[in-house]
Amino acid sequence: MKIALMDSGIGLLPTAAAVRRLRPDADLVLSSDPDGMPWGPRTAQDVTARALAVARAAARHRPDALIIACNTASVHALPALRAALEPGLPVIGTVPAIKPAAADGGPVAIWATPATTGSPYQRALIRDFAGSVAVTEVPCPGLADAVQHADEAAIDRAVAAAAALTPSDVRAVVLGCTHYELVAERIRAAVQRAGRPPVTLHGSAGAVAAQALRRVGGGAPLSAERAGTLAVILSGRPAELPEAALAYAQGRLLKALSPVR
């Protein structure tokens, strides 16, 4: 089995690591666009064009499925990607985990890039899945870029700024950008208020990985002895995992896979 994942940058690491845990024998293809990072401030047309280029680079490796491990690309480019690649290549998008977060009763905060915050796509998800639950949309300018470069000081500043916009009584925070899952514990610490119940974070990586495997009929590993391989594509070029990826546990997990070009 071969699963490809695409994103603007290393935000695909949490979903790739989730696939790796579920199917350690699967070969992984990671295609991203560091030359075009960040995608959040770009127009919908520009995001779509760049996402198509990244997806086609991954598709040349003939994967069994392609995961769009990027909320911004899923918001703006999912229909175009499916039109270009399906039915030959199943395409699985990433949806913010608003429904499970709202199921706890709220209040809920959704941390997302400025491009996703307030978008018709996100507003529709809130309308359809949050019901009467109080939801606050929190834009996080600069956070994805800081995570991409493992810039500790910039991550701290961006997390603190978003936490200041997050109501003190929230019970759940939706991580509406895949990059944010790499710093989930820092976000949890920033939004947790003294004397309040523990805040639950809701990411999408595990659910999206499981959905991709269901689409291609992937259950238990075929062989407990076979370890999957890893192919990395950076803006269309064969490469290795970026150094910044190794700052995160998910990147170090994937680094152990045998590289292929």
Rank of each mutant, 00 (worst) to 15 (best):
L222N: 07
D156H: 14
R188T: 01
I67L: 13
G36R: 02
V173C: 09
R60I: 03
G218P: 01
W39G: 04
A83T: 12
R226C: 05
A103G: 07
S235L: 08
R56H: 15
L213S: 08
A194I: 03
A73D: 01
A162T: 12
A158W: 06
A245M: 04
P14A: 11
A231Q: 14
P198R: 15
G195M: 08
L246R: 15
A190W: 05
T200H: 13
A59L: 02
A144R: 03
A162P: 11
T229M: 07
H149Q: 14
L13M: 06
R50M: 12
V133T: 15
H76W: 12
L30W: 12
R215A: 15
A53H: 09
A103H: 12
A57I: 07
D145S: 13
R237P: 00
A58W: 08
R23I: 09
A112R: 04
L85E: 04
A154E: 14
G105A: 08
D33R: 01
A256Y: 00
A58Q: 11
G219T: 12
G93Y: 00
G40Y: 02
R214E: 15
H202G: 02
V135A: 07
A220M: 04
G251R: 10
V199P: 10
G118Q: 05
V173N: 11
P242C: 07
G131Q: 11
A220T: 05
A247F: 02
E185F: 01
G131Y: 11
V91D: 04
G142V: 03
R193N: 04
A163K: 09
P221I: 02
A212L: 05
P167S: 06
D46G: 05
L254A: 10
S8Q: 01
P238V: 02
I126V: 15
H61V: 01
G217A: 06
R82S: 07
A84E: 15
A53W: 00
L165S: 13
R42G: 02
L213K: 06
L81F: 01
A84D: 15
R23T: 05
P120C: 02
L22S: 14
N71K: 04
G195V: 08
G106P: 10
G88L: 03
C177K: 10
L5Q: 06
T72V: 11
H61W: 07
G105H: 10
R21Q: 15
P141M: 06
I10F: 05
D169P: 05
G118R: 03
A83E: 14
H61G: 00
P198Y: 00
A239W: 00
A209P: 09
G251W: 04
L253P: 00
G118T: 07
L175C: 11
A69Q: 09
A209N: 08
Q211G: 09
I110Q: 02
V170H: 12
D46K: 01
I233N: 04
I110F: 01
T117R: 00
D128C: 03
L22Y: 02
